[in-house]
Design a protein around this nucleic acid. Structure first.
Lengths: 123, 123
DNA sequence: AGGCGTTATATTTTCAAAAAAATAACGTAG
DNA sequence: CTACGTTATTTTTTTGAAAATATAACGCCT
């Protein structure tokens, strides 16, 4: 009976516990790292189009994420305007900013959890 | 400023924090729920073939997982025999059983983490 | 020698998700 | 009324992963 998992693996292999975390709404994944980054970039650029380009994501996919987020929320997280002075644009709501902040703190707690578990693996 | 995330979503939508967790070796995913179940079923059936069938996984995929596991480990986690009385078969090592037990306890700790975070979401 | 059930591996086929492209609508400004 | 840049949506194409299929080797047993 070995004392740690470490000894099972070949020498000089690095070892870590890692994972992924998200918020589910009605059992379906609804708010994870991707949507967070998308909202942040929309907030910075004022445009779904530019945000998607920055993330090298198709406009369509970005729009689908936004549509899903808005569908689950009691008030839209992203409010869009088509046409107008600069062709249109998009803005994120105060609720969206709250969600972002909340998710950030969740991820921090998860990070320390992972670090703790990694340290338990043995040196 | 709302007190909880709950109020942002539409009424009567369930809300939960969920996630996935695994052990990485040299930065690549190496031991998660799939491999655990596969090892367990090999242990029960004595056959990669039957284990894969039970999991509705192709033999090839099962074999790739096993190959990867063995490649990272200092001694094979699954030891196989081709040919012989019943055509051959496979057995998992004591180290494999340790890994399974360790992963089980890790998942338990992760589960309580998720439950705690879910309860923080507000009712 | 031939059959059996398994491991081991290469090749082909299928299929669904992702990407790309095309189209339309919108509203302001010139 | 035309041009522009955006949102919104449909359709087509591409691609890559999964599944299926095929083949071979292995070693015991009859």
């Amino acid at each position: 009976m070995t004392k740690s998992i470490r000894g099972i693996l070949k020498k000089n292999k690095s070892l870590a516990v890692n994972g992924s975390i998200w918020i589910e709404c009605n059992g379906e994944r609804f708010f994870g790292p991707g949507p967070v980054e998308l909202l942040e970039r929309i907030n910075e650029t004022g445009s779904i189009n530019q945000a998607a380009k920055q993330m090298k994501m198709s406009y369509k996919k970005a729009w689908e994420i936004i549509n899903m987020l808005n569908a689950q929320s009691s008030s839209p997280l992203v409010v869009t305007q088509t046409g107008g002075a600069s062709g249109g644009g998009s803005v994120i709501s105060a609720e969206a900013k709250e969600l972002i902040a909340w998710h950030r703190s969740l991820r921090n707690r998860f990070k320390t959890f992972l670090e703790k578990e990694t340290s338990k693996l043995g040196l």
